[in-house]
Design a binder for these strands. Structure first.
Lengths: 244, 244
DNA sequence: TTCATATCGAGACCAGTGCTCTCGAATGGG
DNA sequence: CCCATTCGAGAGCACTGGTCTCGATATGAA
């Protein structure tokens, strides 16, 4: 794979640029990310950076992909660690992992789940990494379905008509077992979950809610129900069963 | 009020600047909003704008306040139009009005509900206008409470401990009748509602969900339940009763 | 080993930004 | 009517993203 010293050097410098840009992103936010500042910090001429990233947006895209991957990895390891025995427990674990990652890296979170920069539509390279989180959630629902504990949604079959052809292909992919109806529900739940997290990360709960862990857990439990995950055990035992 | 021709002229130019800035915001987004471009469009020297807004952030704040007020007004008129007879109907009306406003003005929505610009924390003038939407939601819950149809939340009284002192003061204000427990629930519901809207406005449902109206209504109905609003009539009649 | 070629970084440069300062002119109140 | 206040213009500063050219350097082939 390694062709020669030149390619190695090139890869190293490219990585250093991305790394330094990541540092600045974490410290100051995406708006303050400046190619020139990155170059300055690395002892490079500003123009030299353009040998590695054709423009600022491309550098930003690299960071976006990195953030999606990091968040996706956090969700996936939480899912793996929780096992498949108790879907509700897995659900809580994944949601908490996502929230924890977001609170620890607010700027990276804002980069991927904040307002999209105008005129910027996600390049194809981002859709894979971006789907890792929703697919982790799908995994939980499929585990519940496999265990036969997934709730059915009577009378909402007609809603499946509203799913786009692309999504239908995605959800009815070989390997996927999630019922289409549950998938539609899950899309809405996914959005609501990130509403909770965004409000907290962006400071909308400041001076309003102190016990954010509790409020989050409570809401996420409701979301689990909305997604078709039934409480384990009886009634109020759900919360403790979910691993508090 | 009008002191003289000079003040009138000053107010007019100030309004023109804000208006032109609003145009540019709607067209291009907040990131592209340039003091110089505004000045250019108005035939002013760039420096002249600084007589009216000390810096770019202040101009942006004026736009933020305007957006909060416009969205708040939309929510309030929806609430007023729906009347207080049927809380669930009011709930749907308010949520739909918010969503409609957001979809029609994506850039203004992003300005107030997207990622906060780094190092910018909301000036005090924004908190009033910003509370209009949540207070409209509170109004719906209070109407349900007054009608005696608000669900109780058994066993979640301890969560009230997590409410900050500020919020407690706010919610237990004279004139407010919402039970503290319901208020806590509503805060989470509020966040989830804006998660739904943000995902749609920011294009996260593109190529996934086609029938967004239906998915939104379905989720908002679940949120109503989560907020303690009980379905009117029996079971599946709720949707039609909610005014589809 | 020698040499042509491809790659690299530096530096000058451009257009644009937010913002400050100064200066002349208009204006309106006493 | 006159003088102080207000206004807009314009120059200028420090910064940004991005382009271009030009030497230096390393690489692969002869």
């Amino acid at each position: 794979m390694i062709r020669g010293a030149r390619e190695r050097a090139r890869a190293e410098v490219g990585a250093a640029i991305k790394e330094e840009a990541g540092r600045q992103l974490a410290a100051e936010g995406a708006a303050q990310l400046s190619l020139r500042a990155v170059a300055r910090e690395l002892g490079l001429a500003p123009s030299a950076v353009y040998r590695y990233f054709p423009n600022r947006d491309d550098l930003l895209t690299a960071l976006i992909v990195g953030a999606y991957d990091a968040l996706g990895a956090a969700a996936e390891t939480a899912l793996a660690d929780a096992g498949t025995a108790d879907p509700l427990r897995s659900w809580m674990a994944v949601c908490r992992a996502i929230r924890g990652w977001a609170l620890a890296r607010p700027h990276e979170y804002a980069l991927i789940y904040g307002s999209p920069v105008p005129g910027y539509d996600a390049p194809p390279d981002t859709v894979g990494p971006a789907s890792r989180v929703p697919l982790a959630l799908v995994g939980v629902v499929e585990a519940a379905d496999a265990a036969g504990t997934l709730a059915s949604f009577p009378g909402s079959g007609q809603q499946d008509e509203g799913v786009s052809a692309d999504a239908r292909r995605l959800f009815q992919d070989p390997g996927r077992t999630i019922p289409l109806t549950a998938a539609v529900r899950l899309v809405a739940v996914w959005a609501q979950l990130f509403g909770l997290i965004s409000f907290e990360v962006f400071g909308r709960f400041d001076r309003i809610i102190d016990a954010r862990d509790d409020v989050f857990d409570r809401a996420v439990l409701d979301l689990a129900h909305q997604a078709g995950l039934r409480p384990t055990g009886t009634g109020s035992a759900a919360e403790s069963a979910a691993g508090r």
